[in-house]
Amino acid sequence: MKLTIIETGHVPEQLRGRFRPYPEMFGTMLARHGADLSTQTVPLLDGAPLPDPSQLEAVLITGSPAGVYDNFPWMSPLRDFVRRAHACGTKMVGICFGHQIIADALGGDVRKSEKGWGLGRHVYEVVPDSPHFVPNVKTLAIACSHQDQVIDPPPSAKVILRSEFAPNAGLSYAGGGILSFQPHPEFENDYSTALIELRRGKVSEDVIETAHQSMKTRSESAVLSQAISRFLLS
């Protein structure tokens, strides 16, 4: 299967010498599960046109510093792309901003949360009988970095991952063609820690310290990335 990665954000400039681009992070993440996948990247921020989703096998939309309320020229075409992909049944995965733009395009409410920044490793509840997860997985500790949230999911979406901080952290859509998540299973520990430090001076020291402490919790990103791999290949 060929996975088309829609690159909607870059690694922050201060970190680019140390960390790989997001599409490469996702490629490494999926390769760990032996998934028979090849990838191609659409660098949307560099002006690349969006392909016809009906001609694609599967799509993944990355994270981004953008919000769905921003007025970037690529935002409306991406919403149209999401709607067309959904209509023609192309498999689609969204992570962080990808999770949000899919929900926004399909009728959900996405905005900055009054709860502020989610940073570090958060623990999420896996909703019982959620598709693609192995049985008996009840919670997952995964890295996150976001202010925006899906406040109200689209009518066609079912919550499959949640926390007190992010009640709509994972969504599965009717028809089984879309899976999206707020946290970042593609982030390694050192990158998540670097992102926390990047917020220093922009959020309170209490938030920074709590985020650093949370990174001591063992990552369970592999469980989520395996669910994504299972979804793509199912």
Score class of each variant (00 low, 15 high):
1 M>V: 01
2 K>T: 05
8 T>I: 02
12 P>I: 13
13 E>C: 03
13 E>H: 04
14 Q>V: 09
17 G>I: 12
18 R>H: 11
18 R>C: 08
18 R>G: 09
18 R>S: 13
19 F>R: 07
21 P>I: 10
22 Y>G: 02
27 G>A: 07
28 T>W: 10
28 T>C: 11
30 L>F: 09
32 R>M: 12
33 H>A: 08
34 G>P: 05
37 L>Q: 08
41 T>S: 02
46 D>W: 03
49 P>E: 15
50 L>A: 03
55 Q>Y: 13
59 V>R: 02
61 I>M: 01
63 G>P: 01
65 P>I: 02
68 V>Q: 00
71 N>K: 15
80 D>P: 10
80 D>V: 11
80 D>I: 07
81 F>I: 01
90 T>W: 03
90 T>K: 00
91 K>C: 01
92 M>P: 05
92 M>Q: 05
101 I>C: 06
102 I>Q: 03
108 G>W: 04
109 D>L: 11
109 D>G: 07
110 V>E: 06
113 S>W: 05
114 E>Y: 13
118 G>V: 04
121 R>F: 14
123 V>F: 09
123 V>G: 14
124 Y>P: 05
128 P>Q: 13
132 H>Q: 08
133 F>Q: 02
139 T>F: 14
142 I>D: 10
145 S>A: 14
146 H>F: 02
149 Q>I: 05
149 Q>P: 06
151 I>F: 09
151 I>G: 06
154 P>R: 04
155 P>L: 08
155 P>V: 11
155 P>R: 10
157 A>M: 05
158 K>T: 13
162 R>P: 15
167 P>G: 08
168 N>S: 06
169 A>Y: 01
170 G>C: 03
171 L>F: 00
171 L>W: 03
173 Y>K: 07
175 G>M: 04
175 G>C: 06
184 H>C: 11
195 L>F: 14
197 E>S: 15
197 E>T: 14
198 L>S: 14
199 R>L: 12
199 R>Q: 15
205 E>V: 02
210 T>I: 08
211 A>C: 09
211 A>Y: 03
213 Q>S: 13
215 M>S: 03
217 T>M: 03
217 T>D: 04
218 R>T: 09
220 E>Y: 14
224 L>T: 08
225 S>H: 07
232 L>E: 01
233 L>C: 07
